[in-house]
């Protein structure tokens, strides 16, 4: 059967009950749309503490801070073939560019909750689907230093259109990424080192974390070729933690891009060919993993975990 972009993974196992508990206790604030979820004060506090703890973890990396808005030029998403790989996840911004008469029509249709999308045109923007995406065109503005460079995106809002009742599958969430550009050998070693460090870090928070080889959710039959190719080349690792589903949930990922982004955006270095890699923490998923593992009564968490998060 042909894949449809409407086939979004839904909650399995205890995920639905876990979400209901988080909502009932005010940790999560649901909206009319699944996966578009607000966060109550306890959740926000945990998210910020975890992000601060990650800042401590990466302090010795000497990463350069660079933050971007949650929208990026449509052209950049097109250039990296995102719409061939993940058409089902992409979000695109359309805006009203018409006159007064059309605005009246638009307003009336919108008031009646009818389909008003026909009045819109592309604003030339897309939603950023991964915190690292805006980094590559930015890195291309000057040569990559001979000994490489690391960028820290901070906890950035990203968008992936997969509305789901699984509390871990959010349409918009925070992703904290480190992006490394440099020689092929140094970038490969960097990714493996950080995979091990990140795994040890998440285990130090009392999480039953393990890492595994993985692939991205490429779309359709052609996506199978891309996914199997990614696995065969061991380009992606994930750190997985059980969060109530039939399968454990990825809370962090480690990706080698070879020269994919470097060649698209023209990254150059006097030291020779440039490769890139990134690691990303899904901040909400890490918090959800902590809440699932240790319970929603944060005061009752193991004292060493509380200490790690300065609680």
């Amino acid at each position: 059967m042909a894949a449809s972009a409407r086939d979004v993974p839904q909650a399995t196992g205890e995920q639905g009950a876990f979400r209901d508990k988080l909502v009932a206790e005010g940790l999560l604030v649901p909206s009319r749309v699944p996966g578009v979820t607000g966060q109550g004060p306890v959740f926000v506090d945990l998210r910020q503490r975890l992000d601060a703890r990650i800042s401590k973890l990466v302090a010795d990396e000497g990463a350069i801070a660079m933050e971007f808005p949650p929208v990026e030029p449509r052209h950049d998403m097109e250039s990296v073939d995102y719409l061939s790989s993940f058409p089902q996840l992409a979000g695109s911004v359309f805006a009203f560019l018409g006159d007064e008469a059309e605005a009246l029509e638009l307003g009336e249709q919108a008031h009646a909750h009818q389909d008003w999308s026909g009045h819109l045109q592309s604003a030339g923007l897309v939603m950023v689907p991964a915190a690292c995406h805006p980094v590559y065109p930015a890195l291309a503005r000057q040569p990559v230093p001979a000994d490489g460079i690391t960028i820290d995106t901070g906890a950035a809002w990203v968008f992936r259109h997969e509305p789901s009742d699984d509390p871990c599958r959010l349409v918009a969430f925070h992703m904290r990424e480190l992006v490394r550009a440099g020689s092929p050998e140094s970038v490969g070693a960097w990714r493996d080192t950080w995979r091990d460090r990140a795994l040890a870090f998440l285990q130090s928070l009392g999480l039953p974390a393990a890492f595994d080889e993985a692939n991205d959710p490429f779309f359709g039959r052609t996506g199978k070729v891309l996914a199997r190719s990614q696995r065969a080349q061991k380009l992606k690792f994930e750190v997985l933690v059980p969060v109530g589903g039939d399968n454990p949930t990825a809370v962090a990922s480690f990706n080698a891009h070879s020269d994919h982004f470097a060649s698209v955006f023209g990254l150059v270095s006097e030291a020779g060919p440039v490769h890139t890699a990134c690691l990303g923490f899904g901040i909400e998923r890490c918090v959800l993993a902590l809440l699932f593992t240790h319970g929603t009564d944060v005061g009752g968490w193991p004292s060493d975990v509380l200490a790690e998060l300065s609680l």
């Binding site: 073939d81 061939s84 790989s85 039959r221 052609t222 199978k224 070729v225 891309l226 199997r228 190719s229 990614q230 065969a232 080349q233």
Partner: peptide
Amino acid sequence: SHASISVMLGLEDAFDVEFPDRMLTR
């Protein structure tokens, strides 16, 4: 990799075949 999936679809068109699941590999 992305060019290879264009090749795959181009071959299916040119030879009027559909590669089965087990052939969807690098």
